[in-house]
Design a protein around this nucleic acid. Structure first.
Lengths: 198, 198
DNA sequence: GTCTATAACTAGATAGAC
DNA sequence: GTCTATCTAGTTATAGAC
């Protein structure tokens, strides 16, 4: 029937705004997205947005903060059940890749729009991101200590691994040849190959 | 002396505009950079910009096109003197990494502002980028054929390598602990480790 | 919690003098 | 090749009614 042409979105308005912001910021960027379009996407007027968020900047900050926090929580949970450095690194990589596919748009925006954060907000996000990077580097260092890994330069290798794995949020949509699980397995194998002792 | 407080930039205005655009688009994004600021950066009025470029969009397109073309030319030249698949891949990676450090800002903008291109310009750039990706994949496929490399999925591994190596334009400025040459060597080693047959 | 109306400002681009 | 002046439109955000 004509009535239900557009399905009613039952989520709280604040979540619908977040979701719309993710899609629009990804497609056209933060500065490239007028607040008006954000409002249109959730079928309210521009002014009504300001009941939910103090500013456009606050929407961006909320979105990025949530994305990184969920990622750190997720990876910590993922490795908890593993008992070896290789096992922990493997599930961490799998989690990281799957997260960057499942929440591809958030991940993309959280990376590409860091520069659109205000100075103060940027600093708050960097703290969170550093925490995540240190966590991954610790996994590598553990493996080196136990003899499972052979790594010349742990910080550099850690960064290389993270940029490689985060990259999936860049290209996954373009070529959906492989399932997320297959891509994650593949990346886990690549990473192990990169660090494993002979 | 007070006269030469700001050194006179002797390059043609069109090049100075390009250089300023790279810096500003990197720092604040294409949509985040008003044409007025671009003009101020090269000490002319906004209107004068339009003598050199038809539009802001044309500046972005020119900049990205040049960056990718120079990269393809460069990598082809770099591998010409190598006679083995491993040698060719090694110098290709070294070149790619050094290019992404030496022309860090161009590389960053060329990647992050693809979405700010008009539809038509975007397509023209994709053609160039695909050419580059195919070139790298061919290097991998050659090595597999000769038995030098063992790669499960050449396109996926190619993409993983490229995103990893392009990533240096993201982080190199933040932590200048290593020289460009050291980083390039390190990445070449990582990539070889990723593909070499045992 | 959403609206209409609008303030206050900034955007990209052009006309035409020099 | 660069300028001053300006057009037209779009921007974020607010005031106050409902």
């Amino acid at each position: 029937m004509a009535v239900s042409k557009a399905a009613v979105d039952k989520r709280p308005m604040i979540e619908r705004i977040r979701a719309a912001a993710i899609a629009l910021f990804k497609a056209r960027g933060y500065h490239g997205t007028p607040v008006r379009e954000l409002a249109q996407a959730v079928h309210i007027e521009t002014a009504s947005l300001y009941y939910h968020f103090a500013s456009k900047q606050e929407i961006l900050f909320d979105l990025i903060a949530q994305t990184i926090e969920a990622m750190l929580d997720g990876v910590q949970l993922a490795i908890a059940s593993e008992s070896t450095p290789e096992g922990r690194l493997r599930v961490a990589v799998r989690f990281h890749v799957l997260y960057h596919i499942a929440r591809q748009d958030e991940a993309f925006v959280s990376h590409s729009e860091l520069r659109s954060l205000s100075r103060a907000n940027y600093k708050r996000i960097l703290v969170k991101r550093d925490r995540y990077e240190k966590f991954i580097r610790a996994l590598l260092a553990d493996g080196v200590r136990s003899g499972a890994f052979e790594i010349d330069d742990v910080p550099l290798t850690g960064t290389a691994i993270l940029t490689m794995c985060s990259g999936v949020s860049d290209w996954f949509a373009r070529r959906g040849r492989l399932t997320p699980a297959k891509v994650a397995d593949h990346y886990a194998n690549l990473v192990i190959r990169l660090v494993a002792a002979k």
